[in-house]
Amino acid sequence: MGAVSEVPIEPFHRVENPTTQTDQIAKLQESSREIWGQPARGSDQPSVKAYPGPLVSGRGVQFTTEIVPQPFGAPNEARWYWNWTPNVELRQKDGKDFACIGVTSFINCQP
């Protein structure tokens, strides 16, 4: 789906929010060294989504991964889809499917 960037060596980050990036989730990410992501509403395709670049300010988490994001990202968003993006794994919890990527470094800025 068109030209894409090379594998990014820069970190990615997620910003604290009350549902999908809570303090508790950040702790789980830190201890498991994994980032999980749910499907969008109405979709059955779980994905991990993150902003590119370091977490410059505010609360959230910053990570690096060896898994190349799905080509149809954008300069301002990176995505890793289970079943579409190589090396993304499937996790299940409480009957829900999650995409999962392993991280090579992780900084928790929402302790």
Partner: peptide, 13 residues
């Protein structure tokens, strides 16, 4: 500023 098909670098626009 960017559209699908154009090369991009994450975090740069």
């Amino acid at each position: 500023a960017w559209r699908r098909g154009l090369k991009f670098h994450y975090g740069k626009l």
